[in-house]
């Protein structure tokens, strides 16, 4: 089977280190990589809309000197005529050298990877996996903190439905000395299977709390996610809780001076705009690094040195 990336745990920590090193080299000298993928084509098969992820993949391929083809919603693909994922991918893998796929159904990119003749990258499958976001998070943490081990990582907001949070917990659990501080309303705590199979079975150091301000001084990383109105059973609970999980400049007063604030974006109001000017705000750099880690991943999966 062709090597693909479907789940972040498909990659060993050694392979993640290699990707991070390649991304760092690209950041230092992008010109050296500008022709690495000349003559290669990336197919972006986006069965549901996405702005950042798709543009990031496309920019990554263009900056490697390659070409991009594809579609950005199911309505403009043959899926609207009822074609299966397997058939679409079998056809497209004759036209492109590598495929990035986003699909609303969980597991669709895995099905694609089983049928494809070329590498498939999962660019998000429903609420399930989004490994290139996790790679982006890991590159950002490494660049901002200088390491991926011995960190206290606060994850704040909607920890129940947030796929980026679940993948990041899985990925960071493999490094030594990681302590998770899980900050969320009771309604949105991490799912039982993450708590039992990743944290407890893995003897991972973690605490759960509802109080962001109380734990702020401990954190090396604060990973914010959005608390969405539609996740609550009643409006009163949402109104009561929503401001607790909004990060403001004042709340940062007690934080470490070198703490790093991350967010997978898009942000709505969970980080005040005035935080953007704080030197600890890392989320726009994080979005930029997403392009570089995708360049590194494309190179690796295409076997380009």
């Amino acid at each position: 089977m062709t090597k693909s990336l479907i789940d972040i745990l498909d990659l060993s920590t050694g392979e993640i280190d290699e990707l991070i090193e390649t991304a760092n080299r690209i950041i230092e000298n992008p010109q050296a990589y500008a022709h690495k993928c000349e003559g290669k084509k990336l197919a972006t098969l986006f069965f549901e809309p996405s702005t950042r992820t798709r543009l990031s993949f496309e920019a990554a391929m263009y900056e490697l000197g390659g070409h991009v083809l594809g579609f950005s919603e199911a309505a403009s693909s043959s899926a609207s005529k009822g074609e299966s994922v397997s058939d679409t991918v079998r056809v497209v893998s004759g036209y492109a050298d590598i495929i990035a796929m986003r699909h609303p159904k969980e597991g669709a990119p895995m099905v694609a990877s089983m049928k494809s003749l070329v590498p498939v990258i999962n660019a998000g499958d429903g609420g399930h996996n989004h490994p290139t976001q996790t790679l982006t998070d890991l590159l950002t943490i490494r660049r901002k903190m200088g390491r991926l081990d011995h960190l206290t990582v606060g994850l704040c907001g909607d920890l129940k439905f947030g796929r980026t949070v679940h993948s990041l917990i899985g990925a960071l659990s493999r490094y030594e000395g990681i302590r998770f501080v899980l900050i969320s309303p009771q309604e949105l705590t991490i799912p039982d299977y993450i708590r039992e199979e990743v944290l407890e079975d893995g003897h991972q150091d973690y605490v759960e709390t509802t109080d962001l301000e109380a734990v702020m001084p401990e954190l090396d990383i604060l990973y914010m996610t959005r608390v969405q109105r539609e996740r609550f059973f009643n409006e009163a609970d949402y109104i009561r809780l929503k401001d607790s999980y909004i990060l403001t400049r004042e709340k940062l007063d007690s934080a470490k001076k070198d703490m790093c604030i991350l967010h997978p974006l898009p942000r709505v109001n969970e980080i005040s705009v005035d935080v953007d000017e704080d030197s600890r705000a890392g989320y726009f750099d994080q979005a930029l690094y997403g392009k570089y880690i995708r360049m590194a991943l494309i190179l690796k999966l295409l076997g380009v040195e």
């Binding site: 299966s84 994922v85 397997s86 699909h103 609303p104 159904k105 969980e106 597991g107 669709a108 895995m110 099905v111 499958d125 429903g126 609420g127 399930h128």
Partner: peptide, 13 residues
């Protein structure tokens, strides 16, 4: 049993 699983729509899998 997951209605969001690809097997829920591509039943030949």
């Amino acid at each position: 049993r997951n209605p969001r699983c690809i097997t829920s729509v591509e039943q030949e899998l």
